[in-house]
Amino acid sequence: MSLSLEDLQSLCILSRLEIASGEMEGVADKLSEIVTLVDALQAVDTAGVEPMAHPLDRAQHLREDRVTESDNHLRYQRNAQRVEQDLYLVPRVIE
């Protein structure tokens, strides 16, 4: 199966991932090869097989409802590029 440039373009938007226009074709080709590789799955008879989402066949372990965290925003915000008045800044969000 091969991926068109349009397919790739929409995957890039979905993934918020810029690919230089000169590289689009090469990326599309390689993705097509990968899709061809995984297309081998299509030939397998999986009728009646339960999908396996996780290697552990166990119930989820829960935690009790206790507040264990304290305010560390100054330390955590040292990794952020733009912070003002303790808020993370991003280009304007439009609704």
Binding site: V49, P51, M52
Partner: peptide
């Protein structure tokens, strides 16, 4: 793809 792969993972 995804669901199929999960089934094959089971196999």
């Amino acid at each position: 793809y995804y669901l199929k792969a999960q089934k094959v993972r089971q196999l």
